[in-house]
């Protein structure tokens, strides 16, 4: 392992640890919570099924595309794409079935968090794109992980807001 690879490994490990600590902090402060009622649990179970299928299909499609087209993205970016797709499938299914946020989570706080995550990740993506680090020799690099996460959280945010507005209108007309 050369210094460059060791640096990347160290950076990724620190990033994951900081992310985990941040999520633990959010759970401790009760911004995030996992208390769902029976209808939500059932809906989330169905969403997990769809997400698992999406992950299996996208991982297979990624493997096939790599064989057929040659390497078009590095493994970390490819795995992140597959994960982001399945997370989006899970989140969107949950949102449409009113089972995304738990009983104690405050929509405004969670969506503000998503907005910040989206902005931060897309900003990193913008910086990488401007410096030319996003694509090297025609291959999407691991630096694409940030914009991939950014796009995924943006999709979840948009679906949540649109669904919320549509539900409000529906309830007003009832």
């Amino acid at each position: 392992m050369n210094h460059y690879s060791a640096g990347i490994l160290f950076g990724l490990t620190v990033g994951v640890l900081v992310g985990l600590l941040f999520v633990m902090f959010l759970f401790k402060k009760r911004v995030l919570d996992t208390h769902f009622d029976e209808r939500q649990e059932r809906a989330r179970g169905k969403a997990f099924q769809y997400a698992f299928s999406s992950l299996a299909i996208s991982a297979y499609a990624y493997g096939v595309s790599d064989l057929v087209l040659g390497t078009w993205c590095d493994v970390l970016a490819g795995v992140s794409l597959c994960l982001a797709l399945s997370i989006c499938v899970f989140a969107v299914t949950c949102i449409l079935k009113d089972a995304y946020l738990s009983l104690r989570e405050k929509p405004r706080t969670v969506m503000t968090l998503f907005t910040l995550l989206t902005l931060a990740n897309l900003s990193f993506g913008g910086v990488y794109a401007a410096s030319g680090g996003l694509v090297e020799n025609g291959v999407l690099t691991f630096r694409a992980v940030n914009p991939i996460i950014g796009v995924a959280t943006l999709v979840i945010l948009i679906v949540y807001i649109v669904n919320h507005l549509l539900r409000n209108r529906e309830e007003e007309t009832e």
């Binding site: 009622d37 029976e38 209808r39 939500q40 009113d98 009983l103 309830e171």
Partner: peptide, 22 residues
């Protein structure tokens, strides 16, 4: 009863069949 408002709404609309416990 310890559920979300949407769950009560779904029961009243007939979209969700609650368990005997609920």
């Amino acid at each position: 009863v310890g559920v979300s408002r949407q769950t009560i709404n779904a029961i009243e609309k007939g979209d969700y069949n609650p368990t005997i416990k609920l």
